[in-house]
Design a protein around this nucleic acid. Sequence first.
RNA 1: CGGGCUGUAGUAUACCGGUAGUACGUCUGCUUUGGGAGCAGAUAGACCGAGUUCGAUUCUCGGCAGCCCGACCA
Length: 414
Amino acid sequence: MKQSELFVKTLREAPKDEESANAKLLLRAGFVDKVMAGVYTFLPLGLRVMNKIETVIREEMNAIGGQEVLMPALQPKELWATTGRWESFEALYKVTSHFKDTQYALGPTHEEVVVPLAKKFIFSYKDLPFSVYQIQTKFRDEARPKSGLLRGREFKMKDLYSYHEGPEDLLKYYEIAKKAYSKLFKRLGLKSLVVEASGGTFSKYSHEFQVLSPSGEDVIYHCVKGDFAKNKEIIEPKLIAEIEQGKGVCPDCGGKLMSSTGIEVGNIFQLNTKYSDPFNLKYKDAEGNEKQVYMGCYGIGVSRLFGTIAEVFHDEKGLMWPEQVAPFKVHLIELNGASAKKLYAELLKLGVEVLYDDRDVSAGQKLNDADLIGLPYRAVVSPKTAKKIELKARNSNAVKLVDAKTLFRLLSKG
RNA sequence: CGGGCUGUAGUAUACCGGUAGUACGUCUGCUUUGGGAGCAGAUAGACCGAGUUCGAUUCUCGGCAGCCCGACCA
């Protein structure tokens, strides 16, 4: 894409009210536009990032047998009355107050839709197990939207729901999903911690996927060596005190326990029959006996993940996108009257995702914008370097002088 | 939802109970081009409502909005 044609411009300064890194940088670099607290427009660069994150999520969900669907954001009261959640839903999410006296509302979650859906197609043990997922916009009346994309009133979520003959099969799948989640976050360049947490109203306990970051809202106690990790909300006060004094010992391996803050990017629950009961979702087993369907649900905050990546990967100059989610792979910049037009055409032909800064602005502005937007590679052509091209990775200061052939080779492979 | 801070051009800010100023941006033209260029011209602003006052962007009250802390968070 030619940068001269990008309708979004970068901002020299971040809006004064923003404090979180992801909000400041994403707004400045023109990835998102804030419409109100916790509600954003995703601009061309931002949408490309979002789509890439979604692609990775889809690949991993498909790999564990998830079939993608798209459920409605607008949901009938009748279904919520069935689970008895309509009242609490109104109290919690009065974002839909416009619909309050009517028979439908904007959904904060989709159990009430996905369970009746399954009821229409599940009759026999032969139909089980199966899982569906969607990437949908959720609406919640957050009392306090904050930190840019990390906590919104309208946000994107991937929610997968699995259906099973019984608790054993559910648990088996739950473990598969847990592994898929860890892999998925790793593919996005993030280190995630699998953390035991409360199940909320869903189940006795759940697992959260936490990305450690100073801007995280959750306090996690975890082992420095092994996998032990628990959310503060479910840990014994006595153990907390020990950990705070540096005396906490891991019950699994004896390693030292420490506390960190994390951003919750995913959460998985064993619902068991919590929602299949009210909707009377049953199947017939091989002997013809009617049995309850067991369910699990598995969420990922997609837009929060977007913000988390920005929060984790940036420096004082701007964003630093991991290659897998960068809106473009390379920022092609021409300086001092040089033209990179041919190079641009060649790169496009090779299928390299390239943002071509063909604007008639000063060198400083181009270079600063490149740092701010944070594409993985920067390729600069100028009369100074004659026929060579300066190639630099965003996360390094090393500059390589390469010829066009080498540039194509380096950028078109992985 | 409780507490704190803040609302002035697109952004960041200044001053003031009496004509709202600057920088950046944006637009026009010319000159420029290795870390946010120069000159000339242009564009654009007091969150909303009530009160006090001859007069309110300024003071008071109420609302709304944004950020931060806390509570909450299927």
